[in-house]
Structures are given as structure tokens and as C-alpha cells.
Amino acid sequence: MGIFFRLLLLFSIPALSDDFYRFIWDGRLLINGLNPYTILPSEFIKDIDYQRIIGDKNIFQYLNSPNYYTVYPPFNQFTFAVAAWFSSGSLFGNVIGLRVFILLAEIGTLMCMSKKNTEASVMLYAFNPLIILELTGNLHFEAVVILFLFLAYKVHKKTLLLSAFFFACAVSTKMLPLIIIPLIIKHLGIKKGVIYASIVSIFTLLFFAPFIDKMLVEKLFSSVNLYFQKFEFNASIYYLVREIGFQIYGYNIIGTAGKVLAFLTFSGICLISWKNKNLFVGALGILTLYFAMATTVHPWYASTLVAVTIFTRFRYPIFWSYLIFLSYAAYQTSLYQENLWLVFLEYSLVFSIMIYEFSRWSTEDSR
């Protein structure tokens, strides 16, 4: 039934996100022999071959970051290119091609979950509206990341090499999994963990190898840096810090606050990794800390938390997966405007449930 609900969306065009236009853009550049990491959309439209390569000239007007270089890692780019190649220039066909990858990943994830959890736990993921709508519906590749992370965990006791390969595939789809590397090193032991991390690094570099350009690192990380220091949406702790900044300095302190919160997040990740004995609970804690400190938290970001929490007894990410839809209130009008009261409602409820669960389980574990 979980797969059936996802198949209902097979022929739909995403309605709650426009990220897929950049997926299509990057894929069409790649199948024409162009490196998407070194081409700025706002500059490329001036090229004489622009329409021949991109096809539909209207795609550019739907790009949400035309003045930024792409931030999507190599495995993502591979899926974009395959979908673009099979679609033969059709926007609709391109969307279906991208969705096939996500559907296959979701089927794999449900199979992995069903072998390790009770039926009730799997249903929390299989029928979750956020998971279905944001991953399959809106074409977010967290679905692929989740599958690769589960595969990496599934085989890590048998072969570290294959596990590291799957983990590198996850990193090469979205870079988020890098934040749990310290936890993995602690879980495996320092020696084995460092070897594992090194193998992951080698595989990741091999994925990037076809795109190597002298300006690649500068352009890729300039976009990532701008993302953390310029963009803000549906944040929690950052919004409180920002408000304090307005009261004290009279302007938005995102440039400074972003760096300070990043440092605190890194420190917290190291502490959680060192103190935690359970891999899934540790990963849940690290992801929770990361999103709590982030300046931008789109609804689909919560999908990784939902997937991980299925393997624990914590359920606050499930509540968040319903409450996070409140963030879409910002798009009720053409003029983007967040309702901070709704943001406050969202996070006050989530943090209340989270604090209750952590206090409850920690008390029981201490008995």
C-alpha cells in the first residue's frame, strides 16, 4: 500500500517545490558534454547554444537560484543526466525519469525497514504524508540518500569496503551524511573508523573525478557558503538569535550568527558522537541538533529524521513531519512572507515533545 500511494504520483508535476527545474537544467547540460559545476545559469542564457542545449527556454525562469552554481553532488548529477537522456527533451518525460529513481529508492528503503522493524514502525514511514509528498511527489533525493545509508548499515558487519561505497554514494547524492562521520568512527572504533572514513573519502573523490576543474572547489563551496549565510527559512534557534541581533545591532546578523551556530553544531556533533552508544539514537541526536541550528529548514529535510527514528523509540520527528507543513504558509501569496507565529507554534510543539521523550527515556535508562 505504501508503494501504491507513491505510484499515484508517478505522472504528476511537483506543486510544492521548484527544485526539479534545476535538476533538469543540470542534467541537460551534462548530456551535452558541459560541466554543470562551472556554469552559471544567468550567464549561460546569453550563450548562442542555450536553447538548443536546454530545450525549453522557459525552464530558466523557474530556476530559484539562477545566480548560484549548482550544489548537487555527482551521484545526483548522474541521475539528472540519465533522466534527461531518456526524456529526449520532454519536460514531462524528464520529471517521470527523475521520479523513477526515487520510487526505486523508496521501494528499497521499505524493504530494508521491513526486515529490521515491526509492521507498526514501518507504517510510520510507509504512510507518512511528508515522505510521500516531498520525496516521490516533489522529487527530493533524500529518498536516495536514505536508501544508501540503510544499505551501508546493513552490510557494514560483513564488509566495510562495500559499506563505505554505499555511504559514499549517499554523500555523493547529498552531503548531509558527512555530519555523522564522527559518530561512525566512534561506533566502529578509532582505527577501523578512520579506515572507513578514508575509504568513503576515496570513493567520494572518485565520484567527483569526472567533474574535476581548477575552479570546481571554489565555485561549489562558494554556493554552499552562500546558502548557509544568505538563505533563511523555517529556522528555530537561528530565528531567536536573529531577533536578538535586530534588537542589539539593528540589522540581520546572519553572516556572523551562521558561523557561530556552525561552530556550536560541530562541537555538539563531536560531543554526541563521543557520548552516545547507540548508532541510530546518536544519528537522530546529530540530525536534530543540525536542523535546530540551521538557518534554512525546508519540509523535506525532516525526511531523514523520520527514517532514522523508525529504528529508535523516539517519535518526535513523526510529529514534526506533520507540523512542518505549516511552513508552506509562506507561499500563500506571490510575495514570500513567513508567518513567524506559525513557525513558533511548529517548533514549540516539536521541542516540547522532544524534551518530554528525552527526559522519559533517560530516566528509564538510568533505573
Rank of each mutant, 00 (worst) to 15 (best):
F5H: 11
F5W: 14
P14G: 00
I24A: 07
I31L: 10
I31Y: 04
D47W: 10
Q51P: 08
K57Y: 10
Q61K: 11
S65R: 11
N67C: 03
Y72E: 08
P73C: 01
W85K: 13
F86I: 15
G89L: 08
G93V: 11
N94L: 06
L98F: 06
R99D: 04
V100C: 08
I102G: 01
L103Y: 07
L103H: 03
I107C: 06
T109D: 08
C112A: 11
S114G: 13
E119M: 13
L135V: 07
T136P: 11
T136D: 10
H140I: 11
E142T: 04
L149C: 12
K154D: 15
V155C: 07
F166G: 00
K174N: 06
K174D: 09
M175F: 14
L183W: 04
I184C: 06
K186P: 05
I190Y: 10
Y196C: 02
S198T: 15
T204M: 08
F233I: 08
S236K: 02
I248S: 03
Y249I: 12
N252P: 00
V260A: 06
K275F: 14
K277D: 14
L305T: 03
R313S: 12
W320S: 00
L326N: 03
L335E: 13
Q337C: 10
V343G: 01
E346K: 01
Y347R: 03
I355S: 06
W361V: 09
W361T: 05
